[in-house]
Design a binder for these strands. Sequence first.
DNA 1: ACCAGTGAGTCGGAAATCCGAACTCACCCT
DNA 2: AGGGTGAGTTCGGATTTCCGACTCACTGGT
Lengths: 155, 155
Amino acid sequence: MAATKDPRPCSIADALALVGEKYSLLVLREVCLGNRRFDQLVRNIGAPRDILATRLRRLVDAGILTKRAYSERPQRFEYRPTQAGLELEPVLLTLMEWGNRHLREGDRPMVVEHACGHELVPLVTCQACGDPVRHEDLTSHSQSPGWTVTGPTAA
Amino acid sequence: MAATKDPRPCSIADALALVGEKYSLLVLREVCLGNRRFDQLVRNIGAPRDILATRLRRLVDAGILTKRAYSERPQRFEYRPTQAGLELEPVLLTLMEWGNRHLREGDRPMVVEHACGHELVPLVTCQACGDPVRHEDLTSHSQSPGWTVTGPTAA
DNA sequence: ACCAGTGAGTCGGAAATCCGAACTCACCCT
DNA sequence: AGGGTGAGTTCGGATTTCCGACTCACTGGT
């Protein structure tokens, strides 16, 4: 646990530390779809029950899900996304779009409809100018001393 | 390996099967930043060398990275994102934005600048109407018989 | 020629995770 | 009384991960 490792400080890594474990994002997919119960999640995700229980605890602790009883006697719980959890949905949708594009040909197993009436095709844009994000338009700057964008500056 | 499991068919799950293993998305982050060499990746990601070697093989096989020699004698290789790999960058950026918002307060370890001159804040929008995606505006439909959005229809 | 250093991995054994099936506990239905 | 459901926990074994050390093939300095 000591600092013998020292990877680049990065919000992507931090986010993945929370939701990057196996099944975590699939849990989020399900609760965003409205499936809130343990056994439903087990079935739809295909995860072992104990692993799912561990993930749920972690996601609740992280403030991504809430657990609440929908019945005392017998105690029954449901999991719902918090605001922070809902804000991960765009990540899921972007990933789904990538999967549809590169891992399938035409056969979407799931279609999301947008309120505008069209099938949703998620597009990541720059909030400031509204243009779609393209790799060539980006320049990254590390704010942390010692970490440049092309590797650590040798001391 | 038989079909004793039967999770919801889904492009998110398929995508995660390829890039959801530990470190895979961080590899992609680095190559998108321009870091292409094995030892650089080891340092910047903080992954064990053998695991990184395994991940790189997988990503190359999946067509997300290419491996090519930048020097014969001694053989030296570099890894670059393919088109498919570059198209995962929006996923990373969206995840970074989430991490910045929920896991930090003000202190971005990394800032991405967009060609328009502003700091990039990625925003996921509907390609058809251009509006930002909000959870309330979405309706999901499963295309696979037996899989509704609120669980499998009992037989 | 000799030594140190670098890049790109591989190897081996310990530690951590994951897995499926079975079990529990508390209730409801008939 | 017997069966079913929901929400987990427990068990032992399989699979991954982790870390440090090792290899191999050079290059550069003296």
